[in-house]
Simulated assay, not measured.
Amino acid sequence: MADVLRSLRLGGRGNPAQACALALRAEGVALSLLVGKDRAAEPLWCYPEISVRFEELQFTLGEGPGPDVVRTGTPVTEPDLGRVRPDRWPALLPSAREMGIHGVSCFPLSIGAIRVGVLTVLSDGDRRINEQQWTDATALAGALTGAFLNGDRRWSGGGSAPAPGTFLEWPTGLHRAKVHQATGMISVQLGVSMEDALLRLRAFAYSSDRPLGEVADDVVVRRLRFQDDDDDDNYDNGNDANDNDGMDDIGGPYSPDGGKG
């Protein structure tokens, strides 16, 4: 971990998530930054692929240790998800087990009430996070918090920003921009708040067993249109002559490729 923190200070290159996972002896590591007016968690680092999938799962469902950390600003450690009360994260727990995730610890990137992001550490089923891992993870979270709050200046040799490919490179765009765009479109379609629109989008993604970003793509390109609850026609394929919008309804509120509804 000392080598990782040194790389942060010096603007080191390479795969920061992999380096952190090795230093923490973790099954996976993910770093998400809170961006935008709604403080949505945008993934910056993820290693390996299971960490990517778990971050997407939390974002799709809006529940889990990561969202809890964003709300409370305090660490959440659950070394054995099998022992977590089912009503705590009712949608996430069975999906996480199917993915093969055993334990999760999330640490806030924060100073007081200022929250920058979340560091997520995945652990295997045979080992609890020990004192040294906890110390290393909190030190890493603290270093990252200071780096991002200071605009990376003191971590990149005095420059205004780190060079491309360095550990602390800010994202050039929102990975989940289409989710935000789709939420705005659903808000207009249903005449509801942005918060309610995001809930509807998340519910549809979960019920159709698809990633939230994939469903958002359908909304943005107008393959999927949200309507009132008493109208089951949500998907459009251009075959209904009764529509006046150039897009036609098919099949009701289910994924055309066979979601679970």
Rank of each mutant, 00 (worst) to 15 (best):
G64M: 11
G191T: 07
V84H: 06
A137Q: 03
G157Y: 04
L168N: 07
L10D: 15
F54G: 06
L149V: 12
V84T: 06
E98Q: 08
D68V: 03
P171A: 04
V69H: 14
A96M: 02
G261R: 13
R39C: 12
F148C: 03
G213I: 02
A141D: 07
P65I: 01
A30V: 12
A40Q: 06
G251K: 13
S187A: 15
G157K: 05
T77H: 01
S7P: 01
A17L: 02
N130H: 03
N234S: 04
D217M: 07
D249R: 04
A21R: 10
V35I: 11
E195N: 13
W170S: 14
W89C: 05
R202D: 00
G184E: 07
S193C: 01
W45S: 01
A182P: 11
I129L: 14
G117S: 02
A91D: 09
G82M: 00
E56Q: 13
H175T: 04
L5W: 10
G142T: 02
N15C: 10
P94S: 03
R13V: 01
E78Y: 00
G64K: 09
Q181L: 13
Q189F: 08
G151F: 10
V29E: 02
W170T: 12
L174N: 03
I50W: 00
N234V: 00
S105V: 00
D217G: 04
R115Q: 09
V70I: 14
D3W: 09
H175S: 04
P164K: 00
G184P: 08
F167S: 05
L201M: 09
A30K: 09
T183F: 05
G36I: 06
L109T: 05
W170P: 14
N150K: 14
E169V: 06
T183E: 06
C46I: 11
L190H: 00
F204Y: 04
G159D: 14
I186L: 12
I50S: 11
A161E: 13
R225H: 08
L122I: 04
L119P: 13
G261T: 10
Q133V: 00
A2F: 09
A141S: 12
P253C: 01
G246V: 07
W170G: 11
D152F: 13
A141V: 02
R6T: 13
R53W: 12
D257L: 15
A182N: 02
Y47R: 11
P253K: 07
